[in-house]
């Protein structure tokens, strides 16, 4: 940026003209290489010997139209479950991470439990947790058993809470000890220091990886369908079984990607902003 009253020198004018030419050249190169690669891909796929059969069984527009309503209503379940489980897992992760930082002998059992929890649920495959909760727990025949959907949600929260707890913990540990020293020397208690100094900085720093885990969670919420509830993938499977055509799966896949795009965009934006803040000084 040059100021308005600045008259650029001869050399600067030459440099600017050169850079402009370079920009035009790069855009042309990018456009032609994209076009060439695109053409090549289209020819390779449509020219394949089995392309007609694949197109009929995976990309049938009529079947896609018929399957869309049921897949969409399944997706609505995914969305609702995602929102509830994301909030639950974030809260659980934060609580576990804070518990793991507590010092003093009184808190030993709390610390041990929290550590045991993150070890167990990060190691345990989600599907096993799902089966244990949705099939095992109802088997106890207790009074007031929540519906299978809630149990499945709990399984998701438990599993993802373990991952998110570790992300939160990394954030807490990334806050420099001089910040703690400054807060404590002002007379703030350990709890006040966590609440007002450490956690706000930690959460801001780990927001991008947290959101990344939420994007992963979005795909895994569909696994509750293993226990009965019909989500988008399960709805697509049912439609496929009726028509012997795989197009509903493709519909579900496209919908999942569309659902993920805003979440991923937010993640990228938060990451960019964090990076900017770090270097902006």
């Amino acid at each position: 940026m040059t100021l308005l009253d600045h008259v650029p020198s001869e050399a600067q004018l030459r440099r600017s003209a050169y850079r402009r030419r370079q920009t035009v050249y790069s855009v042309l190169v990018a456009a032609s290489s994209t076009a060439a690669l695109g053409t090549l891909l289209v020819i390779a796929v449509t020219g394949a010997p089995g392309w007609d059969r694949v197109r009929r069984s995976f990309l049938d527009p009529e079947i896609a139209r018929d399957a869309l309503p049921t897949v969409l209503s399944g997706l609505w379940l995914n969305v609702r479950l995602l929102v509830c489980c994301a909030v639950g897992a974030l809260l659980l992760g934060l609580v576990i991470a804070v518990l793991r930082t507590l010092r003093g002998p009184v808190f030993f059992p709390v610390r041990a439990l929290a550590a045991g929890y993150t070890y167990t649920f990060r190691g345990l495959p989600l599907i096993i947790v799902l089966y244990l909760l949705t099939l095992g727990v109802p088997g106890l025949r207790l009074q007031g058993m929540p519906p299978v959907l809630v149990l499945g949600g709990i399984a998701l929260v438990l599993t993802y809470g373990g991952y998110l707890a570790e992300v939160f913990r990394a954030g807490i540990e990334s806050v420099h000890s001089s910040q703690l020293a400054a807060a404590r020397s002002l007379g703030l208690t350990y709890r006040q220091t966590m609440r007002h100094v450490v956690l706000p900085q930690a959460v801001r720093r780990v927001a991008p990886p947290l959101l990344n885990d939420v994007v992963a969670l979005q795909k895994d919420v569909g696994l509750v369908s293993l226990a009965g509830p019909i989500d988008a993938v399960r709805a697509a499977q049912i439609a496929t079984a009726q028509t012997f055509n795989y197009t509903p799966y493709v519909v579900a896949g496209v919908l999942f990607v569309l659902l993920a795009i805003p979440l991923i965009a937010v993640t990228d934006w938060v990451t960019l902003r964090a990076a900017h803040r770090q270097s902006g000084g």
Binding site: A181, A182, G187, L188, Q201
Partner: peptide, 21 residues
Amino acid sequence: DPDRVRRRIGMVFQAYNLFPH
């Protein structure tokens, strides 16, 4: 109680240690 003691003492650090957020 160290918190009670520190309330009576002000400390300033070489690297300022202001809270950036």
